[in-house]
Amino acid sequence: MDLLRDTLNSKDKREDLTQKVFLRCMAITRNREEARDLAQETIMKGLERINQFDGRHLNAWLGMIAKNTYIDKTRKKTYTYTDKITKKQEKIARENLPGDLPELSQESHEEGILIGIDLEACIEKLEDEEREIIALLPVSSNDEMAEELEISSSNLRVKVFRVRNKLAECLEMAA
């Protein structure tokens, strides 16, 4: 059964998938342009490899493709900068590639800008899975997300709670 093809041919399902894939790619890349490119590549790879899909969780399967594609790309980028690189250096490079915060001038330290930058910086500090959870929460039901992550609903509750607490701590709010 070609679930991906069926999903693409149904307007409602396609729109739902569009949002979820884009948000997941946003969570991975933290950059809109990179998210768009990664999302498109993910769908194209999904269509090419549809025979490898076990038919269970389409979003989770596409999420895996997106992650692997991003890791491959990041690795390539890293090797562009240096011929010989240790795993530790690669990890540091990966952490610093997208979403690096620019140094702000004194004038741009306006409250509105800072709030947005703070939140981005705090989201940046989350683990990959935590970022995905928080990105997909507005467009997924808890049951759906628990099923995709292959965890129980109560476990998901704890994870969501922890992510919110981390963000609260990061934003120095007394939650």
Partner: peptide
């Protein structure tokens, strides 16, 4: 407090 964080995070991703 949780609501405020949630609203900010949701609007960050919804904006995207």
């Amino acid at each position: 407090n949780l609501k405020e964080i949630n609203n900010r995070v949701n609007s960050y991703f919804e904006d995207s």
